[in-house]
């Protein structure tokens, strides 16, 4: 009886043939829905903080450098790629990419930092990011990725201009 089952097992093996994939020389394509490393799109992000509030691993931090600059930082250390941030993002600024080979010695390769310029509402004083691309264009001189150059930083005023709101932005140039 045992001989027979050995033969059957041999048939199973022979039928299967060679199935090992040539990874890592060649990697398999991942499915469309694959949840890899999350990518943050600075152009779409409005700094609402929904991702930071909903990250189970607390890997997305939100802090304000000043009234106008908000930093969204993705630390990427213990992120579990659950995709909750992408789920809750109202602007679809976070996408779960197809990257999975994220092993690295330098954590900076994985971390992402989004620096957002937040305008101040002239009525309530709270910060917001201009909703439309057109409004963002008014912020000439400000570069999203250039916090280091502080002279670009816009300072809001706490009072309303008497002039119409269209022309109320003055960039401090040196």
């Amino acid at each position: 009886m045992s001989v027979l089952s050995k033969l059957q097992e041999a048939v199973v093996c022979l039928k299967a043939g060679r199935v090992t994939l040539p990874y890592p020389v060649k990697s398999q394509p991942v499915p469309e829905k694959f949840r890899g490393r999350p990518l943050f799109d600075a152009a779409k992000c409005t700094g609402c903080g929904g991702c930071a509030n909903n990250c189970p691993a607390r890997e997305i931090l939100l802090f304000d450098l000043c009234q106008e600059i908000r930093i969204v930082q993705y630390l990427g250390r213990r992120c579990t790629y659950c995709g909750r941030c992408a789920d809750v993002c109202p602007e679809k600024a976070i996408t779960m990419s197809h990257e999975f080979e994220t092993g690295t010695n330098a954590i900076g390769d994985i971390q992402q930092r989004v620096e957002l310029f937040m305008s101040t509402c002239q009525r309530c004083g709270r910060c917001f990011k201009e909703p439309s691309a057109l409004e963002q264009l008014k912020l000439k001189g400000y570069r999203v990725d250039d916090v280091a150059h502080e002279r670009w930083v816009f300072r809001s005023k706490s009072y309303l201009e008497t002039e119409p709101a269209v022309d109320d932005i003055k960039i401090e140039m040196d």
């Binding site: 097992e9 199973v12 093996c13 299967a16 199935v19 991942v30 499915p31 829905k33 694959f34 949840r35 579990t80 790629y81 659950c82 995709g83 909750r84 779960m96």
Partner: peptide, 28 residues
């Protein structure tokens, strides 16, 4: 032998889970 074969048979299940949920094992 059976170790190899049962893991071979198992692999497509991981792939379909990946297709449905976006990950082989952590379905979230």
């Amino acid at each position: 032998t059976l170790f190899m074969q049962s893991w071979r048979i198992r692999e497509p299940i991981m792939w379909i889970a990946e297709k449905i949920s976006g990950n082989r094992k952590t379905y979230a």
